[in-house]
């Protein structure tokens, strides 16, 4: 069992859990992920390592409520435990002194890009970060990402806070104005796809963190297979980072939708159970 040391609600749907996992914390590197199984009947779901503290022996995850598993996770509090917590999995993000690096993040991935931006900067890069949100009340960690970046740009789709528009717009301007050696884009699949499309004409290498459906996370099942540069790769062991210009985005999005009906069924059942639990109390 893995104990929850701390919990924070970053927005109404995005939560942070700090989990006691000293051995994972000792080995974690930016860009890697863990797999959790919340309880005996739970599925195995992957979540990026958002932060870690080797001394304290803790690993932080940040997740968005989308279906049954993430909602179950959102109900846990400090002092509760998670049944299984496996990691660190996947390859770490490639960190070198590239020059100017642009880190683009949307939604829950703001949290996961922080350690990458931090490490990129430590490696001697000039880091420009772009964070995008749907609307003002979903904004979180602006200061935190700002503190590890040389420059920070914030966008909201509806213009309710800072710059109006999508992250790809400031990204394009930066590419036109300055010399950029590398772009890292993490967030919803569509966002990563459009960031890659934006950078492609400029020939700037763009690393994305793919999020296909996974089971074991160790290369045993092949569920996470993605097509990159015409070759089949297992995202859990060959990735999750890949060259965004080479990814077959349509295939990824189609595979992500494999279990839509089942996910809905599972969520309905969960909601019913929760409603029952409240009535019974």
């Amino acid at each position: 069992m893995y104990r929850i040391l701390d919990r924070e609600d970053l927005t109404s749907e995005i939560h942070l859990l700090k989990i006691e996992a000293p051995r994972v914390a000792k080995k974690a590197q930016p860009g890697q992920f863990i797999i959790v199984r919340i309880d005996e009947k739970g599925e195995r779901i992957p979540l990026t390592i958002a932060d870690w503290d080797g001394k304290e022996g803790s690993v932080t995850i940040v997740f968005m409520e989308v279906g049954t598993s993430t909602r179950k996770l959102a109900l846990l509090n400090t002092g509760d435990s998670i049944l299984d917590f496996v990691g660190p999995l996947g390859r770490p993000t490639e960190i070198e002194q590239f020059g100017t690096v642009v880190c683009v993040a949307g939604g829950f991935a703001i949290a996961t890009i922080v350690p990458i931006a931090r490490t990129m900067r430590k490696a001697g890069n000039r880091v420009v970060s772009i964070m995008g949100f749907r609307t003002k009340n979903l904004v979180f960690w602006e200061e935190r990402l700002g503190s590890v970046s040389d420059e920070l740009i914030v966008t909201t789709d509806d213009g309710s806070y800072k710059r109006k528009g999508l992250v790809t717009e400031p990204l394009k301007e930066l590419l036109q104005e300055t010399r950029i050696e590398r772009v890292i884009a993490i967030g919803p699949t569509v966002m990563m796809k459009f960031c890659s499309l934006t950078t492609k004409p400029f020939g700037v290498k763009t690393i994305v963190s793919l999020n296909p459906i996974m089971v074991d996370g160790t290369g045993m099942c092949g569920c996470c297979r993605v097509s990159v540069g015409g070759e089949t790769k297992f995202a859990c062991v060959d990735g999750p980072d890949f060259d965004g210009h080479e990814v077959d985005w349509d295939l990824l999005m189609k595979r992500q939708r494999t279990y839509l009906d089942e996910e809905k069924e599972s969520l309905e059942l969960w909601k019913k159970k929760m409603a029952g639990a409240i009535v019974n109390e």
Binding site: K41, E43, M220, G222, Y259, E262, S266
Partner: peptide, 24 residues
């Protein structure tokens, strides 16, 4: 599916008892 995925979902994750078990 690979047989590994199909069997893992079924046996290890008990997908035959979905949605009582979460793995579909």
């Amino acid at each position: 599916y690979s047989a590994n995925e199909f069997l893992t979902r079924t046996n290890l994750m008990k997908a035959y008892a979905f949605p009582e078990y979460d793995t579909p």
